[in-house]
Computed example of a mutant assay.
Amino acid sequence: MDRAYPPINNLLEQAACITGRSKEATGEVEPTEGYKGRQIKKLIEFANANNLWIDLSPLNITYMDKGGENEVFHDGKSSVIKLNNFEYAGDDLENFFIRINAHNKFFSNVPYQMIGFSYNSRQEFSAVLTQPYILAEREATEDEIVEYMEALGFETDYIDEFHNDQYEVFDAVPNNVLYGIDKDLYFIDTQIRLKK
């Protein structure tokens, strides 16, 4: 999907590199809680230098929902726009980029694309992500989710948690996984982290 928008090609990779370099620059001097603040500051500088700010106000979009980290809008066509405030990244934004890359690897039928940055309704710095809008027949069942994840090579830890040798996927619950009208499953909002 990145290739369809050449001006923002590789934005996700560039932002991930900036957060990684920012963390490396602090070394052992700063506690881990400080990483996130420094990483956000570097991403704001990156957004300013490259005109990557997205203003949603003039766009013809419809508010859909809000969760712990996302404010979700529909563009009225084929995409969902998510303002992600990095809440679930913890103290290190690298976790956010690991999650998005892993999501796109395992759930490539509903990939995220990073298109810029903005501030959400609570004035929190946020990544602006797009994702295909899914025409769903219903939410997936727990059994369908388990079968799908096992087909991807994951082992079931709990009904909504899975792991393979590299990653842990959790919050794979029916309201985060849709059963499309095409009979495929779409994992639209799960959590993924590197396996400890």
Rank of each mutant, 00 (worst) to 15 (best):
P6I: 10
P6R: 09
P7F: 05
N9F: 01
L11Y: 06
Q14R: 12
E28F: 07
E28V: 04
P31L: 10
Y35M: 12
I44G: 00
I44A: 03
F46A: 01
A47T: 08
W53E: 07
I54L: 10
D55K: 06
T62F: 03
Y63P: 05
M64S: 08
D65E: 10
K66I: 14
G67L: 05
G67V: 05
G68Q: 05
D75E: 13
V80H: 00
I81T: 10
Y88L: 13
D92Q: 02
L93R: 06
F97N: 07
N104L: 06
Y112L: 07
Q113E: 15
I115F: 04
S118G: 09
N120S: 03
S126P: 01
S126G: 03
A127T: 09
A127Q: 06
A127S: 12
V128D: 04
T130Y: 01
T130L: 12
Q131N: 06
P132I: 06
P132F: 02
Y133S: 10
E137L: 09
T141S: 13
M149K: 04
L152R: 01
I159R: 14
F162T: 06
N164Q: 06
Q166N: 11
E168V: 15
F170W: 10
F170N: 14
V173Q: 03
V173P: 00
P174L: 02
P174F: 00
V177E: 07
L178S: 00
G180Y: 08
D182M: 00
L185V: 05
I188S: 03
D189M: 01
Q191T: 13
Q191V: 09
